[in-house]
């Protein structure tokens, strides 16, 4: 590793890398489990993606997806892995808010808060 001028910044980047990797590995593991279940249960059915109908309401919201997971639904488990994937970069932004604050880089802490606000808008406000 290079002799960085800001060791605290470098530490933050390493932790950030670990966070991203953990999120992706976790999501892929859940997705793989959902995939096996999905193929075993529905592998013989016909696919139908040529016309857009939208997914059932239960697979479109966090609450609905968690309900499907509790019921052991394969599609719900795959959607849970999608939620973990979406949460990964969001957690990275949350992490950056505190990381920059610890380095007293207040401007960038504020920048990160702004990005988090935009992400939250996209996630929770229905357009």
């Amino acid at each position: 590793m290079p002799g960085g001028q800001k060791p605290s910044g470098q530490k933050m980047e390493e932790q950030m890398g670990l966070l991203l990797r953990t999120g992706v590995v976790l999501a892929c593991a859940i997705m793989l489990a959902g995939a096996v279940l999905y193929l075993v249960r529905h592998g013989g059915e016909q696919e139908s993606y040529s016309t857009f109908r939208g997914e059932p309401a239960a697979l479109e919201s966090i609450k609905g997806i968690l309900g499907e997971v509790r019921a052991g639904d394969a599609r719900g488990i795959i959607q849970l892995s999608v939620l973990v994937l979406i949460a990964t970069p969001v957690m990275r932004v949350v992490f950056a808010i505190f990381g920059f604050a610890r380095q007293k880089q207040w401007i960038f802490s504020l920048v990160s808060v702004t990005v988090l606000a935009l992400l939250s808008y996209g996630l929770f406000v229905r357009g």
């Binding site: 997914e55 697979l59 719900g76 795959i78």
Partner: peptide, 30 residues
């Protein structure tokens, strides 16, 4: 990742994300 996450929530709410399709695509590309 952050850019895509910003719109992914909107797509999820609209029912654009079909698990049976997102799964083979994501696992394959990764």
């Amino acid at each position: 990742g952050v850019t895509a996450a910003a719109s992914a929530g909107i797509y999820l709410h609209r029912g654009y994300i079909a698990p049976g399709l997102a799964m083979p695509v994501t696992l394959g590309v990764v």
